[in-house]
Write a protein that binds this DNA or RNA. Structure first.
Lengths: 165, 165
DNA sequence: CTATTGATGTTATAATATAACATTGAGATA
DNA sequence: TATCTCAATGTTATATTATAACATCAATAG
């Protein structure tokens, strides 16, 4: 059992937030999830998830491999892709299609069609869930198509980076 | 000058539509556009655009290169990517991020944040404009991010393919 | 005519991702 | 204990997607 942690608002990621809480929260969630589903949250999986949680910047598979190599771990492509597949399948990591990169999920558990805001300057990413974004694609589409999965990505610039220019 | 062609509804692409009209319409548009902007709609660019217009299936860059090779034309990667860049820049082709593939735009001219419905079975793609989709991301996002570009893709199954199962 | 420019052509390589198979280690079971 | 099984990890090779850098060519502006 862990202490209750205040809900964070996703779109605050571009501002300051308590990242230690954020990090610990996510770790706790994935541990709980894996325990419940009898899945192995192995050192390798933990390590990769840590890289992704460090800040809200997406990492490419080969960046992850570089980090693994620095840490003296195995670092051939399948290693990274397999771990990422696992983390994505369990809903703790998303792929950012527009960047060929991977980012830790900010709302694990909440059933989602995530939407991402990607800052083109700092490259950080914020994830919006449907309630915040007001986006719900499934409901807005024509009747001759049945949606199974959605990708929503917005490129732009975040307030912090805007302030710097 | 050309005869006025009836507006097509984008989401009818998964059903039957008059593809000759559709094709001719698009060709006319791009010719007009290039003439107006004093851009060269060269044989190579025309050929690639034709491949993309043939049906509403997205083509990968290397598929386009195969078609060029079959047609006895130059077919090294930069050829395809350059033409695709041109067609995308002018708004007549979009990239489908989830497929690493390219598709002819269905609403050239209409200022858009396109949304795509991609059938996982027949692999055809329909493009929705904001009015039809009811999607308008720019308006729904938090105030600490300024959207410059959006990617919206829906994977699923179209009526035609649904009917076959 | 020659200089510039945009388009195309060519060679090489970078970046991203997967297939196929080998090894290991931690339970389950005989 | 022995060994079976299975998921995870490790390894080798290769497929797929994309770009960098530079060469050529043809139209046209000066």
């Amino acid at each position: 059992m862990q202490k209750k942690i205040p809900t964070k608002e996703t779109f605050e990621f571009f501002k300051k937030h308590d990242h230690d809480v954020c990090f610990g929260d996510a770790m706790m969630e994935i541990e709980k999830h894996c325990h419940k589903k009898n899945l192995q949250f192995t050192p390798l999986r933990r390590r990769v998830f840590e890289y992704l949680l460090r800040d809200h910047k997406p990492l490419g598979a080969y960046e992850i491999l570089d980090l693994l190599r620095e840490d003296g771990l195995a670092s051939t492509p399948p290693i990274a892709y397999r771990v990422l597949d696992f983390l994505m399948k369990e809903g703790f990591v998303h792929k950012i299609q527009g960047l060929n990169a991977f980012v830790a999920c900010s709302h694990p558990g909440s059933s989602h069609s995530p939407a991402f805001m990607i800052c083109r300057k700092c490259e950080k990413v914020a994830e919006l869930d449907e309630k915040i974004s007001g986006i719900n694609l499934g409901k807005s589409i024509p009747s001759d198509f049945s949606v199974e999965e959605t990708v929503v990505e917005m490129r732009g610039i975040c307030t912090s980076c805007m302030a710097l220019s």
